[in-house]
């Protein structure tokens, strides 16, 4: 019974993740798409809990929803007048049909490949019942120290660059 509840929760989280995707892909309103994306991100975060990746789940919530999604919303609000918002996210029909066919081909090919591949668990599938934060912290500060530092430089560069690119626009608007 216990297991079944876990599975039901899992299935509902999967649905929470996948179902909004269709809204992202098909809605004509960009705001709806953005909110659907919000649910997808939350769903993914839930999936991370099932993968014993608690820290990752928190990062997902903080960065994706707190950062990326807010940026996207800013972008929407900065670039569109609110009155025509219902037609903000139109679809190109010709392209979407071709894309649909292509994506279906990819889906079926990969689906069967994934199912038929024997994914050998190398250590029988590792679970971290005590949480991963400790172990992750150790990894990032030892083996992955260099990427960690480089990422900070990258963020610095992006910060400067975006300031210039966006600041220019804002300044010119004031002129």
């Amino acid at each position: 019974m216990n297991i079944e509840i876990k599975e039901i929760v899992f299935i509902s989280i999967v649905l929470l993740t996948i179902a909004p995707c269709s809204v992202v892909a098909f809605s004509r309103n960009i705001l709806y798409s953005a909110f659907a994306l919000f649910f997808t991100f939350i769903g993914t975060s839930g999936l991370y809990f099932f993968l014993d990746a608690d820290f990752l789940a928190i990062v997902q919530l903080a960065v994706y929803i707190g950062g990326v999604l807010v940026l996207l919303l800013f972008a929407i609000l900065l670039t569109k007048n609110i009155d025509d918002i219902k037609k903000t996210n139109t679809i190109s029909l010709r392209r979407s049909i071709t894309a649909g066919i292509t994506v279906l081909v990819l889906f079926f090919s990969l689906f069967f490949v994934f199912l038929s591949t024997g994914w050998t668990p190398l250590n029988g599938g590792a679970a971290y019942p005590n949480g991963t934060i400790h172990e992750l912290g150790r990894l990032i500060l030892s083996k992955y120290l260099l990427p960690f530092e480089i990422a900070s430089l990258l963020l610095l560069a992006v910060l400067i660059g975006s300031l210039v690119l966006a600041g220019k626009t804002v300044r010119q608007r004031e002129d």
Binding site: T98, A99, T102, V103, V105, L106, S109, L110, F112, V113
Partner: peptide, 14 residues
Amino acid sequence: LIIALAIGVFYKAI
């Protein structure tokens, strides 16, 4: 790009 990807993957999967 995607079509090329699909062709490659499909070809290999088949």
